[in-house]
Write a protein that binds this DNA or RNA. Structure first.
Length: 271
DNA sequence: CTCCAGGTTCCGG
DNA sequence: CCGGAACATGGA
């Protein structure tokens, strides 16, 4: 099968799945899910095949997507390194909130914060004698105090997450409506939320709203762009990088971005 | 101890 | 539009 489960869960797009036996344990919304890949075969929980297949985006035309990438040395290396990686369809709020807490944090820290929030304020769901926790709804976070969130090691992000949760809970920003907007409008709407700038908005669009063209530029991607696409050039501004990536990587730019991101972090023989 | 991490916001050229 | 600085926390 044209899918690599472990790579997809470990590449830094989603943060709550845990290794369990030979497979992975996590939640899709409020559903506890165990998945395992044996050889090429994906073992799905009986009765939840449709839910899980949709979450892991098994319907994305991966061969066509990879073929659409620009044909340059960096993308060739990334495409080779990330074979089988898919962009999953995360629940929008969970994705948005997680990336609000992601600023200036390492991937491991983001995962830890996510787990703390789930355990303290999410819905408890039993699973085979154990328990899992869903990501807390905006309404659940909205009634907390800033210090409650600071106690989850959120730091200055606590205020942003709290205010964003209150805006969403109050309907001041409607995520269902965002889903119906075009990319530009959706990005602008998300950026109304505190703690959401262009990068977090693009992560949310890509991982939570199926906008596979959205191209988040973080420190890793910026490094890749500067060193592999603008090497030797002077005064490459952020605006220049944004304009370049928006056109150069094409209609599946978000996929290209995630492939480059993972390659830069785990496969690039320098840095 | 220093440096940096999937940034955002505000402020002065 | 652009570069700098402040903002918290923890691991290397």
């Amino acid at each position: 099968m044209d899918f690599d489960l472990t790579l997809t869960l470990e590449c830094g797009q989603v943060f709550h799945w845990q290794r369990e036996g030979a497979g992975w344990l996590g939640m899709i919304g409020s559903e506890p899910i165990y998945v395992e890949q044996q050889g090429g075969e994906l073992l799905l929980p009986p009765g939840e095949e449709a839910l899980v297949s949709r979450y892991f985006a098994l319907d994305h035309p991966l061969a066509e997507i990879c073929a659409s990438f620009p044909d340059d040395p960096a993308m060739q290396a990334a495409r080779q390194f990330c074979r089988g990686m898919r962009i999953v369809r995360q629940p929008p709020w969970e994705c948005l909130a997680t990336f609000i807490t992601s600023s200036m944090k390492q991937v491991a820290h983001i995962a830890r914060i996510s787990h703390t929030l789930r355990r303290r304020y999410g819905q408890r769901v039993p699973w085979n004698g154990r328990e899992l926790f869903s990501y807390p709804a905006p309404e659940s976070l909205a009634r907390l105090r800033e210090e409650d969130l600071r106690a989850c090691a959120l730091g200055y992000r606590a205020k942003n997450l709290l205010r964003a949760a209150r805006m969403v809970a109050a309907g001041e920003v409607n995520l269902a409506a965002v889903a119906r907007m075009d990319d530009e409008g959706a990005r602008a709407e998300l950026c109304r939320l505190p703690g959401v700038g262009e990068k977090v908005a693009n992560c949310t669009l890509l991982f939570g709203f199926e906008r596979v063209r959205a191209f988040p530029i973080d420190v890793w991607i910026e490094r890749v762009l500067r060193e592999l696409y603008f090497s030797g050039k002077r005064r490459v501004t952020a605006g220049r990088l944004r304009d370049f990536s928006a056109s150069y990587f094409g209609p599946y730019g978000g996929y290209a971005q995630q492939y480059l991101f993972h390659y830069a972090r785990k496969g690039w023989p320098r840095v």
